[in-house]
Simulated assay, not measured.
Amino acid sequence: MSKGGGEKASSPWVAESEGVALYVRLTPKGGRDALDGVESLADGRSVLKARVRAAPENGRANEALIALIAAALRVPKSAVTIRAGATSRVKTVFIAGAPAAYLDALARLAPTSG
């Protein structure tokens, strides 16, 4: 079971029993591959901003996002999947594995202090 109630509304990730769900706003053709911190959407949700050089054609931008997140967290690409929003700018990405290690790494990559 996941630890409920420990997540803040300002966090774009949520620990689950099998890994971490990460909410991402992807900018394809963004000039570089990078994670650009956390932002709040108009509806109040927080997302991790990501940009990739790849165009949103034939799944290339999603593949680049998976590679970017895998590299940033030092996990195999096979551990990272797009759970929802494959054709949307806002996506839910799932990283399979021990949540504690990912939460620490994500906090260093994209602090959520607001």
Rank of each mutant, 00 (worst) to 15 (best):
L26C: 11
R83W: 08
T87M: 00
V52M: 07
L103D: 02
L68A: 04
G97N: 04
P12S: 01
R32T: 15
R74M: 06
P76D: 11
K29D: 14
A98F: 11
G5Y: 09
S11M: 10
E16G: 08
G5T: 06
D36V: 02
V24E: 07
V80Q: 07
K8S: 11
A86K: 04
L68G: 01
L103P: 02
L73G: 05
S40V: 14
A42Q: 11
A42S: 13
G30K: 13
K8F: 09
L48R: 01
A67C: 04
R25K: 14
N62L: 11
P111A: 02
Y102A: 10
S113A: 13
A50P: 00
N58T: 04
T87A: 04
S40R: 13
M1R: 10
S2M: 10
S40Y: 12
A15K: 07
G59A: 09
G85A: 00
A72C: 10
P111H: 08
E7I: 10
G5Q: 05
R45L: 06
P12A: 02
N58Q: 15
L22F: 10
G19T: 03
A96H: 10
L26M: 12
R83L: 12
A50M: 03
A96P: 07
A100L: 12
P12T: 03
A100G: 05
G114V: 15
V90P: 00
P99D: 14
R51H: 03
K49H: 01
R74N: 12
A15H: 00
D104Y: 03
T92I: 03
L48D: 00
E18P: 01
L26P: 03
K29S: 15
S46K: 09
A70C: 14
E63V: 08
P76H: 08
V75D: 01
E18V: 02
G4A: 08
Y102E: 09
A98C: 15
A54D: 08
A61L: 10
L109N: 02
G59W: 11
V75M: 01
